[in-house]
Design a binder for these strands. Sequence first.
DNA 1: TACGCGACCTGATTG
DNA 2: ACAATCAGGTCGCGT
Lengths: 235, 235
Amino acid sequence: MDAYHLQETCNAVREPMFEKPLTPSDVGKLNRLVIPKQYAEKYFPLASESGEKGLLLCFEDEGGKPWRFRYSYWTSSQSYVLTKGWSRYVKEKRLDAGDLVIFERTLAGDRFFIACRRRGSPEEPSSSSSTHNAWNQQSFYNSYNASSSMPSSYLYMSSMQQDCFVQRGGEQRSRGNNSTVGVPKTLRLFGVNLECIPDEPEDKEQVVHSGLCFMDQNSVHRGRFMPGNASTSQL
Amino acid sequence: MDAYHLQETCNAVREPMFEKPLTPSDVGKLNRLVIPKQYAEKYFPLASESGEKGLLLCFEDEGGKPWRFRYSYWTSSQSYVLTKGWSRYVKEKRLDAGDLVIFERTLAGDRFFIACRRRGSPEEPSSSSSTHNAWNQQSFYNSYNASSSMPSSYLYMSSMQQDCFVQRGGEQRSRGNNSTVGVPKTLRLFGVNLECIPDEPEDKEQVVHSGLCFMDQNSVHRGRFMPGNASTSQL
DNA sequence: TACGCGACCTGATTG
DNA sequence: ACAATCAGGTCGCGT
């Protein structure tokens, strides 16, 4: 396999990261999701303890809709959290305590995915009113099953085998942006810019907050966060 | 008196600051002690409103045990409070509403002391299980009587007797570092560093917090807080 | 002005 | 017993 195809493969191979049953606090007024430390440190490394204040992480949901969350570490409680943006997700997905959030990434680590499943619905990701399980509908991830014992070595193949995923019932929804999918060099996928280009106006507040370290658009996971980039020059 | 002896004297001359009968809130779940504004502004000046988030104050109790409290101003209630660390003190001393906390300092203002007395025990400071009224036992403050009308000019003389601090009966707690006691220039007394040297492992969480303005060890009341020193260079 | 959110804190729990 | 984790809190700033 040449470099191009390797790249393309990694862009599409999915790997589960972790899932978490939501606590009352996770869906309550605290507006934050605690990421279990083991997973946080494995998948969302912050630039060590060099005073980094937070990172903006982007995830695609089942409908391809991008979700941006501020990710940071609270030294006082020694815990990793998603803060800004999280409450909007909870609200739109109508999440409740006991529901499950599921995090995945591409093998290349350049894209993240978020899904949710209602408590007691062992297979069905929760569907929001507008987007309707596009992951499954698109059949990219037909075989997806975030079993509770999700081994981290378990991979979802969607590249080079996209066929497998493409079948799955004829619900094909219009997301509009699929045209760029599969053009690795641009790194604009599912409407999410993986390079420095500013993103949808939806969260213009991000711009307001851009004075914060690592909260401006430029730092949104290029490759794997580029932790060495954590300068505090803005302070 | 030369500078050396003046320094040594001021290190040991004690001056009462204030005392407060504890309210139910002071010993309850709010985990904070409200410092009467008049005393707070007199003895624990914060660096005005220049965005300062709080200060870490260290007090020695009757047994010489250091207690660190976060001290800050709550604009919402317009009150000065001790927060972090306070609940531990309440618990260890088994304080209840109506009990008295007593604050003192050296004349030089470089060391603080905290004591408590049970409600209705006019003379006896409350004793914790392990440390047993070392202030009185050592007879440093034999004449100590935190009467309710404590004139601020009332001084406790203990200077030129720093030896007393070194002896400390048989109950010498294994803090390991007393070797520097009695060397005034080091300003390590009772195991409390009054300069920049990091302190007991007991509160290593403080180290974790060292990135916070005014909460790191370096800013712990050198002289009188040195608020201008609150560099964020660790960020 | 109410509230989202950032920063801070603590107690319960668990290995 | 100790240490680590994290669920459930607080206050205050900014919008």
